[in-house]
Design a protein around this nucleic acid. Sequence first.
DNA 1: GGAAACACGGTGACTAAGTCACATACCAGG
DNA 2: CCTGGTATGTGACTTAGTCACCGTGTTTCC
Lengths: 202, 202
Amino acid sequence: MKHPILETLPPLLRQEAEKTLRTMPLPVGQVLFSPGDPCGGLPLVLGGSVKVQMTAVSGNRIVLYRMGANDICTLSIGCLMSGRGHRAEAVVEESGEAIMLPRGLFDRMMAASAAFRAGIMTSYGLRLDDLMLLVEEVAFRRMDERLEQWLATRANQGEIHATHQDIAEELGTAREVVSRLLKELERQGRVVLARGRISGIK
Amino acid sequence: MKHPILETLPPLLRQEAEKTLRTMPLPVGQVLFSPGDPCGGLPLVLGGSVKVQMTAVSGNRIVLYRMGANDICTLSIGCLMSGRGHRAEAVVEESGEAIMLPRGLFDRMMAASAAFRAGIMTSYGLRLDDLMLLVEEVAFRRMDERLEQWLATRANQGEIHATHQDIAEELGTAREVVSRLLKELERQGRVVLARGRISGIK
DNA sequence: GGAAACACGGTGACTAAGTCACATACCAGG
DNA sequence: CCTGGTATGTGACTTAGTCACCGTGTTTCC
């Protein structure tokens, strides 16, 4: 019961939440939902990292966004409300914990707490913004720039552990494209390549 | 005061809404908001058609989605809540009317009416879905397929009035690409091209 | 330990899409 | 009927995605 959005609830609801809700472990690799799955509740992420991705009919994938500590799976709200299945897939990347908020409790929280409503709406707005940015990026930005930016933001001590396939799925492109662009970066002396690992970034 | 989402309000709020809210004309070409604009309220579209688009630094454009009769500009809610400016631009395509719902009234409606809340959340969910679909389309689908689908869905009596530039901005591509693909369709006898007009579709 | 199966990365050849430059065609107003 | 602005056509080139195939590490299993 550490999710900040629950702190904002009036005492009665908060008590109910503390009584009924259980934290749920998120082991690495666990699939929170898959395309077509009905919505079984609203996940509140307490910690760890969950990536949300789509798979095209061609088998190509792209990561839409990530949820981290204290995030709310806004995507699920739409399913919760419309009753339609999820369109994307959510997979745990770093283990953590989550709370599954059932529909009824969610509705009561929305009714009772202005702060809760504000939290939900803000989180929605951020998600829309993310997706609009992603559309622009996919539609208009060059792959070499996007790759370099991705390497820079995800580098840990100038190093990343990921296969070319992993990176291709992040950016929504093909493995061969990533391989070629990385090779070119290596020729320029800007990275060092090894199996499943890229080092010497920046 | 004909927007269906207002019908769901409790009598008191509904009276307040009817007293304070004015319908606002939406003449063709009017810009509802531009990138960076702060949010001056939540637009409820009563009729007509409004397109929401982004412009990249390169000058390239892409249409994200359209709002029609009874739609709510979900995009504005995020700005309303976070206080950040809009990321996209909204332009009236077919004239109509709208209501501008100010922040305070919106908050009270969210507090008072479960049906209003449900309407807002559902509309949000649909918008997210649209954008996810768009990401997949832009990232993975072939331009010739997307163009043909666009022609099919927008054809009126097998005819469309639009320049190649217009179509390119719909699909997030370059004018030359649209010109070439259309020329190829014409060679196949599937469309007839004229200045500013495409006919004989399907 | 060794063979087989698998995962990862490299690369050539080709197609699709985007960019740049410029030519041509159409149309409205003087 | 000329002219400037808008719309379209097209060649040449670059970037990105696809397909096919290879080589090389890793793991598994006997």
